[in-house]
């Protein structure tokens, strides 16, 4: 911990404002006067200044894949491979038209509710064939079903 005189007022976040040049001239002058007299605040200034610098010198973090593209993979490989926009637009428009046509023809997919207890039993039964029958089957015999 930074040793400092516990009784006096200290600069605290004024220090950050000082570093970021956010203090009006009068306030700045007062801060400098305090710093000259207070070792504790000088030490804190060093600490906070170091953290500020560490963030400020971070390199720009670039995207590793193109920012644009469909979720299903889109553009493969290296980011930023350009393609003529007009051709892409045409391809996209065609794909959208085809997709719309197909969606119109397909039956709507039904709402389903998987039966968890019976799927789990099927899984455990199958797992007990190649796994250890004792530890795989005993849980099926437990009366309580799936919890919250």
């Amino acid at each position: 911990m930074i040793p400092r005189d516990p009784g006096a007022d200290h600069l605290d976040d004024v220090l950050s404002a000082y570093l970021d040049d956010e203090l009006a001239p009068a306030a700045r002058h007062e801060a400098e006067a305090h710093l000259a007299a207070c070792a504790g605040c000088r030490a804190e200034l060093d600490e906070v200044s170091a953290a500020r610098r560490a963030i400020r010198i971070l390199p720009v973090h670039a995207a590793r894949r193109p920012l644009v593209g469909t979720e299903s993979g889109g553009l493969p490989g290296t980011p930023g491979v350009p393609r003529p926009p007009s051709r892409r637009r045409a391809v996209w428009a065609l794909a959208a038209a085809v997709a719309a046509a197909i969606a119109f023809l397909l039956p709507r997919d039904p709402e389903v509710a998987p039966s968890l207890p019976s799927l789990a039993d099927s899984h455990a039964a199958r797992a007990s064939i190649t796994g250890d029958p004792l530890t795989q089957l005993a849980p099926i015999a437990v009366p309580v079903r799936f919890g919250p």
Partner: peptide
């Protein structure tokens, strides 16, 4: 260990 993936056409409510 065993792991099962069950698939069925449709959507959840």
């Amino acid at each position: 260990h065993g792991l099962s993936v069950f698939e069925q056409r449709g959507h959840l409510g």
